[in-house]
Amino acid sequence: MKPLAKGETRVAVDLGGPVVGFPIPMSSISAARGASEKLSVFGGFHATTLAYNALQFDAGVNYSLLETNKWKPGISGSLILNPIIDLRVGNSSIFPETAFNFYWLLKDRHVPFIGLTNWYDIAKGAVELEKGKLMHPALYLGYNYEGAKWIFGIEAKWLNFNKTLMIPQVEYTSIGGKGAAGVYFKAAYRIFKK
């Protein structure tokens, strides 16, 4: 999203997921820090995944490519790694991710944003019955309210829009029969800002 100011540190809680009548409450806790005027680093831990006996983390960087100016969007790019370790038998996977974010800063506190993210399944050959795919994109659209200390956000995602998913006995929301729609909520707290 919008890169952090240099020296700024945030902790955040995210809650949400694919909509199956209600958003699956996938939750994560994360921290981010503005390493320079253009570069932020961040990392997160997924609590709900741990509740199902798997460790999931994410760690990455976000780089400002273009500053926002009034109605002209700011653009940033992210590189992220998403490791998942299954604690039942010890299988592990890692999914690199890239994202391009377009955001606006309105009245110094309203931050609408859109973007495109993509998970890369570099082990796609491990998908059974020879049906693996490298690209797992998602489109997202959201809004953050950025107060002096607290930041609150809501985001809608169209996950895996390049494929038809099959989730037995669950009524999930797809768009045109492709992918799944998700809704996410965020609360973040600024520990300090330089």
Binding site: A54, F95, A126, G132, L165
Partner: peptide, 12 residues
């Protein structure tokens, strides 16, 4: 894998 599209093991 059909639910997520990813090369995850069922044991996840």
């Amino acid at each position: 894998q059909d639910a997520t599209g990813l090369s995850l093991s069922g044991s996840t």
